[in-house]
Design a protein around this nucleic acid. Sequence first.
DNA 1: CATAAATAGGAAATCGTTTTCCAAAGGAAA
DNA 2: TTTCCTTTGGAAAACGATTTCCTATTTATG
Lengths: 329, 329
Amino acid sequence: MVSIKDVARHAGVAISTVSKVLNHYPNVSEETKERVNKSVEELNFLPNSVAAALSSKQAGRVALLVNLSKKTQVVGEIDLQYIQGAIHKAMELNLDVITLFFSMFQNRTLEEITRYLKSQSITGIIIYGLTKEDVVLHELVESKQFKCVVIDAPIVNEDTSCVGIDNQRAQYDVARKTIEENNCRQVLYITGKKNGYVTDARLLGMEQLTKELGLKMQVCDGKFSELCARNITLKYGKDNDVVVCASDLMAIGAMKALIEMDIFRPVCGFDGIILMGYVGKQMNTVRQNFAEISSAAMEELQRLMNEGEGRIVETAYNLARMKYMDIIC
Amino acid sequence: MVSIKDVARHAGVAISTVSKVLNHYPNVSEETKERVNKSVEELNFLPNSVAAALSSKQAGRVALLVNLSKKTQVVGEIDLQYIQGAIHKAMELNLDVITLFFSMFQNRTLEEITRYLKSQSITGIIIYGLTKEDVVLHELVESKQFKCVVIDAPIVNEDTSCVGIDNQRAQYDVARKTIEENNCRQVLYITGKKNGYVTDARLLGMEQLTKELGLKMQVCDGKFSELCARNITLKYGKDNDVVVCASDLMAIGAMKALIEMDIFRPVCGFDGIILMGYVGKQMNTVRQNFAEISSAAMEELQRLMNEGEGRIVETAYNLARMKYMDIIC
DNA sequence: CATAAATAGGAAATCGTTTTCCAAAGGAAA
DNA sequence: TTTCCTTTGGAAAACGATTTCCTATTTATG
């Protein structure tokens, strides 16, 4: 393997000079900079990231910490897009990333987790799927030992940023659209899991909307589960004239219930997963680009690791109407 | 961070001695071994894997190279389970893994890919989703620069193993079961993509079966696509008395077509994905445990990196009947 | 013109391991 | 007792970068 040493020799400069050129340090003349770059080109040099990670405590590696949705396994699609987006961006930014799952840290103390991450030379973390129940992981974020970017949970401090869409507004928007299209007055709102951050935000959106439009609303806990949503709809669907769900999966459950009861009610979902295509009916939904979100998270983490302060990063969403033919041959 | 140096000091031995104990070298007396281990315990020492990777060329890191199924995105479930299984096992075995996607290497030459992997100190690779079209990746495997484990493709050489189920026998089994249960004589077989290795194996299974039972068979290329399978079934479903599909997704398409035409034909699928639960009908399928397969792959890679010779590793499968209620609240 | 300040580039320490090589000590054989 | 192995443990050189000093050389300033 061609190393920085070879480049130095080839360019007739010192190793440290090559390193400085590579990392865009000042105090290198244009002339030598060019000479080094030419050598890099000619020798096809690519720095060894392991050595770099060991050497510099600063430019460490990042851990992608994913909470796989167990109950609603079918939406593996979402998790996968998060993973993919993050890893792609990391490669682009020349960051090393290792992927980890919440399940690996179950029953582990903060100290153990910290130790493990440090043994991997990790200095930055991206967390997806954090719930209020994950106390140890909250402690991890608060411990300030690592730069963190939390997806979809409103946690911000000196070295922690959060990224995601504005769930409150998105829920407001999609529900409003559906309700106005169908002139509804009495809403059945099926929420997500109690301990999830997005659940709260989306509920707030609904409360704002119903207040503004002077609607009645019945709120039920659907736990992000298709079957729960189905059962709730079977029970209360008839008494309401629209069913708003905090996820597509639950919306599918609701639709199935309505079909079963043979009554029509407009339904709207949230997420814009491809699975929607398999339902054979249309509904409004909020389409999130998960790959883009995690990509933004990675960029934010890099910023955090270099410069500084945590902040809130908001990503875009759009309203969509999903239907069968979204899947093509 | 507590380092090997601290352990050495605490135990009153040399750094090299600690390393030897940690890596189970011979030539260390039980006595010192114990003393070192006690120090490791007391100091809560965990070796820095980055330093280890840099230092030893041998005990390198592994790349998990995944070909995400673009067309049939909905089966992200499968990809995810592969990823999860591999990473879990890697942690257990104390191996570092970085996850990569085929898409990152598109239009890259063998030389570029090799260089990148080496810059990451990678010495072992697990590949999933390899098709015959991926020439460069085939070259990569053949180049013998890395130890490889290929999932679901029959590639074996000095330092390449393959793991997966016996696709031929599995296809034979599930089709035979379905056909005998329903007493069929004329089979419509919808295959997967032309360039896939499993496609060939499964087709062989069908050929063996139809020959043995003296059945007629019509073979169509369904490209692992739901809609293709649907169209094929619409066209030829009536002329046959059973539809065998090389994937669950295609089986779903076939079922939809049959429902559309309002005729009954037994259908069987392959994979055992959870999505099956969303169909609302029953069918036979081959259930693979993807997490277990990639877990086995990781174990095999470790063996390959330490000892030696490539070989074929066969994992288990079982026949299952999937239905709606597999999804619980 | 002399001195101070700024700039370019190199030498060497460092990061935390692994691994090779060597020396000391212990035991067996002569 | 001497000689020769065989264990055991330590010293030090990698691994391939980064980063901190430090020394020349320029350039600016009085």
